[in-house]
């Protein structure tokens, strides 16, 4: 379990994250939503210790995150940040960087590491791109290669900061399938989502942030019944039923 317990965090004097309590349960897809600038990405940055926590605690499997060495932490949680560079290396090479926390100093990639990287490439449908240069790929392809790198970290928890941003709708839907596949494989997913309909469609548990605080966490039905999203985003939500299931759409 991944737990935020009364966390305060920020860059300068001001706290961007205030009194946040939030839980990611094992084997579930937990989705975090909120308006731009509400602190979602900052919360994610607390997980790779890019930002120090001022008050409160973050626990990974009941152990304080500050007690993990960076590499041990990276073996537990793999984070795909929102801002990623566009390196000029092969797809295979980028995905293989996911093994970094598992390579002690001087240890080269072994047979087992390569198998794990291969599996990650297969899972993200990037196997065919293997020898291509990352800088020559489309945005959607690149996103999937980074996902492959994140998966190659073989961590229990996978954290994705806006994984669907700037992607064509085809990729967005593919990504949802991929997350469900990961869940079926027993991995735990925490994803920041921009698209509310998709968030509601995929989440087992949904967290809603406003002004640096997680003001709600619970199931999708509960979230809709309590009209949380309607209050935070000032929209109206409608559930519609199609043959393939129910969807939530929003209007002003």
């Amino acid at each position: 379990m991944l737990e935020f317990k009364g966390v305060y965090a920020g860059y300068d004097k001001e706290n961007i994250i205030k009194n946040t309590t939030f839980t990611v349960k094992n084997g579930e897809i937990t989705v975090l939503v909120g308006k731009n600038g509400c602190g979602k990405s900052t919360l994610i940055k607390c997980l790779n210790r890019q930002i120090n926590i001022r008050e409160g605690k973050i626990m990974i499997d009941s152990k304080d995150i500050t007690l993990y060495s960076p590499k041990d932490r990276a073996k537990k949680i793999a984070i795909m940040p929102q801002i990623r560079s566009i390196p000029s290396i092969s797809v295979e090479g980028l995905a293989a960087h996911g093994r970094y926390p598992h390579l002690s100093y001087g240890r080269r990639l072994g047979e087992k590491d390569r198998e794990i990287v291969d599996k990650a490439l297969k899972l993200t449908n990037t196997e065919g791109l293997r020898h291509r240069n990352v800088s020559e790929l489309s945005g959607g392809q690149r996103q999937r290669v980074y996902l492959a790198m994140t998966l190659a970290q073989s961590s229990e928890y996978i954290v994705l900061d806006e994984p669907a941003a700037y992607l064509d709708i085809t990729y967005q839907l593919e990504l949802m399938d991929m997350l469900k596949l990961l869940k079926s494989m027993g991995r735990t997913v925490l994803a920041v989502y921009h698209d509310l309909s998709q968030a509601l469609k995929i989440a087992d548990s949904i967290g809603v942030m406003e002004n640096g605080e997680v003001i709600f966490q619970g199931g999708v039905t509960e979230c809709l019944e309590e009209k949380i999203l309607e209050k935070v985003f000032r929209v109206k939500a409608h559930s519609i039923s199609l043959d393939s299931g129910s969807f939530v759409v929003f209007e002003k």
Binding site: K45, N48, R49, Q50, S69, P70, K71, D72, R73, A74, K75, A78, I79, M80, P81, Q82, I83, R84, S85, P87, I89, L94, H97, G98, Y100, P101, L103, G106, Y146, M149, T150, Q153
Partner: peptide, 24 residues
Amino acid sequence: IMLGRGLNVLSLGDDVAASLGMRV
């Protein structure tokens, strides 16, 4: 040369390198 892998990971950007467990 011995620390080359660290340089490679660092070239992916601070956020990615930190997520991979590097003290950036």
